[in-house]
Simulated scan of single mutants.
Amino acid sequence: MKALLQRVTQAKVEVGGETVGAIDGGLLIFLGITPSDNEATASKLAQRVAGYRLFSDADDKMNLSLSDIQGGALVVSQFTLAADTNSGRRPSFSTAAPPQQAEPLYQAFVKALQRLDIEVATGEFGADMQVSLTNDGPVTFLLDTEKN
């Protein structure tokens, strides 16, 4: 499972011209799911995201987490994060979980964040979404459960 974290001052997702999810300060999280992922992976990644220190403290050091600042999370499914881009000029999506496996794991990740007292907004799984954000910093990190 991969989570691309972007520290934002605001972010929103629209589907068909309607806003389906929005946050003020916090994290925009693009989530890519692979066939080897499961609910334990989702829970472990949610814990890591909630506690990952990427917000500035009073000394302007990245010492605060999403939980510390009580920020929001906007979680957007993005199967392209799970693409194999190691060769050629076209990505292969054989390394991405099929939708029937990925959607329940996406929901499990969202629920795991909520259990950690994170206010969560979401996109719409499988929809053509338009994402708008103001990246704060910019600060962007990729967390990959397969690399740990």
Score class of each variant (00 low, 15 high):
24 D>I: 11
37 D>W: 00
134 T>S: 12
137 G>A: 13
20 V>L: 07
144 D>V: 05
56 S>R: 15
14 E>R: 14
78 Q>H: 10
86 N>A: 12
110 V>M: 02
3 A>T: 01
132 S>R: 10
1 M>H: 04
93 F>D: 06
40 A>L: 13
52 Y>K: 12
146 E>Y: 07
64 L>W: 13
57 D>P: 03
8 V>T: 05
28 L>I: 09
127 A>E: 01
29 I>P: 04
144 D>K: 00
94 S>R: 14
58 A>K: 15
76 V>D: 02
22 A>N: 11
67 S>N: 07
33 I>Y: 04
17 G>K: 08
108 A>Q: 02
59 D>Q: 15
83 A>I: 07
59 D>C: 12
17 G>Y: 06
59 D>K: 13
10 Q>G: 14
66 L>Y: 06
99 P>N: 04
141 F>T: 08
58 A>T: 12
144 D>I: 03
145 T>L: 07
87 S>I: 10
98 P>C: 06
13 V>E: 01
102 A>T: 05
22 A>P: 08
74 L>V: 11
125 F>Q: 10
65 S>K: 10
79 F>C: 03
88 G>P: 05
117 D>H: 14
65 S>W: 11
4 L>Q: 07
94 S>L: 13
147 K>N: 09
62 M>E: 12
79 F>R: 03
110 V>H: 01
90 R>Q: 12
37 D>F: 01
146 E>M: 12
62 M>D: 09
71 G>Y: 03
12 K>Q: 15
3 A>I: 01
30 F>L: 15
41 T>N: 09
62 M>T: 06
44 K>W: 08
56 S>I: 10
148 N>R: 09
75 V>G: 02
75 V>R: 01
43 S>F: 03
142 L>K: 04
77 S>Q: 02
133 L>Y: 10
119 E>S: 14
52 Y>T: 03
1 M>E: 00
29 I>H: 11
141 F>K: 07
96 A>T: 02
114 Q>R: 11
137 G>Q: 11
123 G>I: 04
17 G>Q: 07
124 E>A: 13
81 L>V: 09
65 S>R: 09
144 D>L: 02
132 S>D: 15
104 P>Q: 00
45 L>I: 08
43 S>W: 04
